[in-house]
Structures are given as structure tokens and as C-alpha cells.
Design a protein around this nucleic acid. Sequence first.
DNA 1: GAATACCTGAGC
DNA 2: GCTCAGGTATTC
Length: 275
Amino acid sequence: MPELPEVECVRRSLEPHLVGRTIARTRVSLPKLARPHPKALRQGLAGRTITDTQRHGKLLILPLSDGAFWTIHLGMTGQLICAPRRPQAKHIHITISFQDHGPRLYFRDLRQFGFMAFCPDRHSLQTGPLASFGPDALKISPQELAQRLAHRRAPIKTLLLDQHILAGVGNIYADEALFRARISPLARPIDLHPQQLLQLHHAIQQTLHEAITRGGSSVRNFVDARGRAGTFQHQHNVYRRTGQPCPRCHTPISRITLGGRSTHFCPHCQAADRG
DNA sequence: GAATACCTGAGC
DNA sequence: GCTCAGGTATTC
């Protein structure tokens, strides 16, 4: 479920439960979710203390004692659960227990697209889990966004989903940000005025910040580490609203496929010839 | 770029 | 039975 706002909500809900705690034991029941392999994850985490919680795009980064890092990507259906006992749930693939014998951390992932990785130092973090990510979507400047989009020829929606360009925007927030900026998902960067790129940058920031404030979007069943659902799905203007009236002009929302992903937009407010 | 692959489940 | 699902890497 998680795009940048959901991962940020997970990070915030996790922080008070994790920082300062020392890992005792890691149990991996689905080896492919542990990188580079289960033994490295188990041995790397054992005895190390979590010193902070950070996020880059959709990647959770937990700095550890001795300059190591633990990274977690939730993929499409990943969920972190902090609880004293194993929840009555299927698809729990990794369990972390701590030296204080307090609540454990359970990694649940139905579709198995997520992962946990151990990085012994900053270099392996940057050449490993972080290698494929551009700047964080909440930290990138308008100038840098414009620069990174400049000579790309794909439709803008496809580019927003490309984590090499900027990290954190997924299908929901790409559609919602383009609606706010009144830009067609089919527009190419070369078609856009500099002013429109500024609007897009602003729309991305606004949409992501507002979603974080509302606890993220629980389209299917996203919950944070304490089991709380978000409410931003009630603020969606276009995402999964095919055929329903545009909140701005009442034209029915269209749905097309772009880069293999369903794409929702208002054909009037976001008309291609209006950028 | 588009298609496909990795997975399981919900909803029709 | 079929289509769709919020992510990403790899192939043609």
C-alpha cells in the first residue's frame, strides 16, 4: 500500500517503539525477503542498537550502532507490526525480537514484494538499497525537479513514478498531484511551461504533506505499525474515481493505462492542450 | 517505451 | 473463471 506518506506514517508510529532498543534475534521464514541473504541479516542485526529512524522515498532506513544500517522496503503490501505477541495473521515472514524482551517487530507481506536489508556501512547503503533512488520527493527543489525531467520524453505521469528521477511518488499520489497541478498525465515535459513545472512541484509537496497529516491513504487496508488506518483516501479527487464527477468541473473522471498502470484524470481540467 | 515477472487475494 | 491491485527489476 505504501507510498511516501504511508511509509512516513509507519516511520513515525515506529520511532518511539524502536529507537534505543537492541536487537536480539531475527527469524526469517521466507528467505527471499532478507537481503543479501537471511544469515547476513540475522548476524548483522544481532546485538546492534537502533539509533534513529529515517526515510528516503518509500525506503525506511534504521541507522544502527557501529555505523551500520537496516533498511526496509514495504513493496506493495508490506506491513510492520509492533506487538508483544505474534498477531493472528497470515503472511508474517520475519520476526525481530529484542534484548529487553519487549514488543517484537513483525514483518508481514502478502505479495512478497518487500524486503529487509542489512548494510554494514554507509557505502553499502548507498550502493545497495539507495542506489536506484533519486532525491526524496519532499526534499527536491523545484529547480532540481525541472532539471531531472528536462530532456525526458515519456509522459509526465510515467516519469513521476520513476524512482530514479524522484523517490516516493507512487500511483495514487502521481494522479492526485497532476490533478492539483491541472496537468494532463499524458503531457511531456517539453510541452510544459516552466510555470507549470513549478505548479507540479508545489502540488506534489502539498499532496504528500496533506496525506501525511491524515495518516496516509488506506485504499485497501493500509495501517501503520500501531494498526491505525489513514483517512486521505476520502480526499482523493481522481484516484479510483472513474466515471464520478470531477470535484472542480463535474466532468466524469477518465481512466487510461500509462506505463502499465491505471491512470485517473479529469479530461477537462487536465486537458492535454492546456498542459 | 512496453511487456513481463515476481506473489496472493479481493471482487466481479 | 477473469481482472485488478498502492512496487520494482529485467527483458525485448
